[in-house]
Simulated assay, not measured.
Amino acid sequence: MLKNISVVLFGTKYPENVGSTARAMRNMDCSDLILVNPPLWNMERAMPLATAKGHEIVEKARICPDLETALADHSKIYGTTARTGGWRKGVLTPAEAAPLIVQQLKDGEKIALVFGPEDRGLTNDETKLCSRLINIPTSEESSSLNLSQAVLIILYECFKEALETPFTPAGPPEERITTFQEQEILAANLQETLLAIDFLKEENSDYWMLPVKRFMSRINIKRNEFNLLMGICRQIKWIAEKSSPKK
């Protein structure tokens, strides 16, 4: 049911938390686990917390050196955050995110749910890689959740939504949504183009690109549209370079 969702654990410190997460994933019919640069990975310590049904998830977990590699073939990235405000805008609750995620799965997209290290969560730079952010509301007196609890809450909302609106993932290859890697390439080219025509200034250009990237993540750019936009960027940069004064 949630086959096209990957749970991405970034910098998870304790193997036991990986095991508990695998158990939660099995409960919610989600099986793709990705570990990004785990500092103390030990499968033997993870297995008891995974229980017998979660062992296969732990055994098949992919280990990646960085977030960009882990997210490369996904089309929508949801990061989790305990903090809001500043750069962390448009934050969703799990209940708000679930209908979006299930509809995207229905459209044939591949989704990544990203969880940061237990002690600090995701940094601003890491959240910049995410299409949207999810925050789990808690009591102000006790806002800390165990990693596997956070995973279970978000997957449960998605599972519940999928039960209410069953679907068969589909989508012809020529109409597939662009992957994270392609979206990053397009965003980088668009940023260069906007700098070339002075729409963006060099100072804080990454910050001012954030609303643009978030807008792009919501419009479901397909591969043929990616090729079109890349061509437009190339032409604009060529014209801007041609018309700029010779140094």
Rank of each mutant, 00 (worst) to 15 (best):
S139V: 01
Y156R: 11
L147Q: 10
V151T: 08
A162E: 12
E141V: 12
F159I: 02
E126Y: 07
S143N: 15
D107Y: 11
I111T: 12
L122F: 11
A162M: 10
A112F: 07
N124T: 03
I153N: 01
L100S: 03
G108A: 05
Q103N: 08
G116D: 10
L147E: 00
I153W: 03
P117N: 09
Q104P: 00
S148R: 09
Q103R: 15
I134D: 05
P117Y: 12
L147P: 02
L163E: 12
A112W: 07
E126K: 04
S144F: 05
I136Y: 09
K160N: 02
S144Q: 14
D119P: 07
T127L: 14
A98T: 05
S139L: 15
S139K: 10
K106M: 09
K160M: 11
N135L: 07
N135M: 08
T138V: 12
A112K: 02
D119S: 13
L105I: 01
E126T: 04
I136F: 07
Q103V: 01
L155R: 02
L105W: 05
I154H: 02
Q103Y: 08
I101A: 08
T123C: 01
E161I: 00
L105E: 00
A150Y: 02
T165S: 12
E141H: 15
Q149H: 15
K128Y: 06
Q103P: 08
F159K: 00
L152I: 04
S148T: 04
A112G: 09
L147S: 04
S142N: 05
R132S: 11
G121F: 14
L133P: 03
A98C: 03
L122R: 02
E118L: 12
L163W: 04
L122A: 04
Y156Q: 03
E118I: 11
C130R: 11
E118S: 11
D125N: 07
I111Q: 11
V114H: 11
A98R: 00
T123Q: 08
L113V: 07
